[in-house]
Design a protein around this nucleic acid. Sequence first.
DNA 1: TCTCCTTTCTTTGTATGCAATACTGTCAGA
DNA 2: TCTGACAGTATTGCATACAAAGAAAGGAGA
Lengths: 226, 226
Amino acid sequence: MANVQDVTPIVRRPLHEEATDRLRDLIVQGQVAPGGRLNERLLSAQLGLSRTPLREAIKVLATEGLVELLPNRGAIVSHMDAARLSETLAVMGVLEALAGELACLNATDAQINEIRALHYEMLAYHARSDLAGYFKFNQAIHLKIVKYSGNAVLFNTYRQLNGNVRRARYMANLSKERWDAAVREHDDILAALGARDVKRIKSLLSDHLAHKLSSVLAALPSRQAA
Amino acid sequence: MANVQDVTPIVRRPLHEEATDRLRDLIVQGQVAPGGRLNERLLSAQLGLSRTPLREAIKVLATEGLVELLPNRGAIVSHMDAARLSETLAVMGVLEALAGELACLNATDAQINEIRALHYEMLAYHARSDLAGYFKFNQAIHLKIVKYSGNAVLFNTYRQLNGNVRRARYMANLSKERWDAAVREHDDILAALGARDVKRIKSLLSDHLAHKLSSVLAALPSRQAA
DNA sequence: TCTCCTTTCTTTGTATGCAATACTGTCAGA
DNA sequence: TCTGACAGTATTGCATACAAAGAAAGGAGA
């Protein structure tokens, strides 16, 4: 018989979980604009379920900060203005710094190699100037670093905040210079991780996030004027 | 007419919010033991509402990490074992360090004085060896520091994690030595905040949390054996 | 024309009912 | 004594129904 570890368990997810994920994706991918209302009847019809599980999903997304509840007036997709974005990235900065530190200490070589593989894939998209593909692997790398910190609470906290800024990253039209710089920073981060250089990775990740913040902030105000 | 700021608005909170807060308190204060099941019918009867808003509350508490959902088998109060506690406190450590830094930069003198007042009240309870009262003001001080960082995202994130460890703090039977040491640390923290010494408050808060972790961890395993 | 009130319609908030799933206890058979 | 099947019960998951709040539209009076 195969190793028990290899057997994937039978999963029958409850509707409200499915609804939460679907709705989260809709918001993160910008299919529902910030400020846009979530009509329960409409949404439940579109998702093919009743209002009860949908409402549970909305409450969950509200605690995640993706939507805002207006009592007796439903829910709207929460706005991600410059202030909130910078606040979120400040928090993510210290979380990533901690994650990098812990990953240096706790990650296995195999895990670091996995991140390295993602890094090279990301470089490929950068070489092709494929922004969407680049973002995808960029995301994956940052998430893996946090994941391989071995701190599950840290991972969950980070992931929740990340959901909120992913929307902004889609908007941010990276300049070529900033993009190149970010790639170089990633090179350094990976090197520090491979060398398990705790101090260095902490400062690199902090700086990386700070740069990301200023680059996104630079791109954002123009959108708000529109 | 009185200043509009002074008039407290009439708030009629939705039942599901009320239920969330009540249930959260029940869990945080240990009225429902970790691992204890949340019977929807029973709880809804006790809280005087129907299962619908209660279920919404449970979903919210699940995303906060206070309860765990077992599909088709309801929800249980999540366990706070040593591993999870130390993970949580590690995250809270970097969050508090960031908060202290920002508070030094952003808090008004009045806000710092407010924290100072809480500090003296806490000292009073310490002098009387009133642990419960001490904890209350200890909590309040830490929350205020985070609040006066001026970063709302940071505050929310911190508060969510804090709800999870508050349960453990109730358990932790502080030794007299550790208690005295914690009070001295608080003296230093307040001094650094008053002097707006960014670097110092960062390291003080980090150390304070690290000490708290080891003290709580020392107290915890005995409970698990029981 | 503008304002305010009234009425109607839409949408949310909550309760309830039904179906599906999981648990418990009993009993037959090995 | 133990295992497995079965029935009965309790509990959750979801859908629906009703009540209440809010939004919108229309009309009377200034």
